[in-house]
């Protein structure tokens, strides 16, 4: 499968709580419904995050996603499988991916 790739993994701000300072990581995979986030910060499975990132000319702020699965790679980084929770945000993502793919 030859998938589209951004020039580098998309950096993203990760908000876990209003009380805590945000974290950061990179989106290793992105689709309108789910994604994969790589970060050296540890987060628990099931946690809901708000992601802020840019894709092409579009900026996304506080895209809500839940951590479906967390796996730690041999380097010590965490790979988080995410499911986007808001269908409206997913539609925006889809449009941005379509735009970026042109």
């Amino acid at each position: 499968m030859n998938q589209n790739k951004a020039d580098s993994c998309i950096p993203a701000v990760i908000k876990t709580s209003l009380d805590l300072p945000p974290l950061w990581g990179r989106l290793a995979f992105l689709s309108p419904l789910d994604g994969e986030l790589v970060s050296h910060f540890e987060l628990p499975e099931g946690k809901v995050l708000a992601l802020t990132f840019e894709l092409g000319r579009a900026s996304f702020e506080d895209i809500r996603a839940r951590i479906k699965k967390a796996l730690r790679d041999p380097h010590g980084y965490y790979n988080y499988s995410l499911v986007f929770l808001d269908p409206a945000q997913s539609d925006l993502l889809k449009a941005a991916i379509n735009e970026a793919a042109r």
Partner: peptide
């Protein structure tokens, strides 16, 4: 502890895989 994953990860690089509809895939 903070620098170990960064130091190790620094030796490998890749890009973001983007797909329109992973569900369909």
């Amino acid at each position: 502890e903070e620098l170990r994953p960064l130091y190790r990860k620094a030796l490998s690089l890749s890009g973001t895989a983007i797909s329109l509809d992973s569900l369909a895939l």
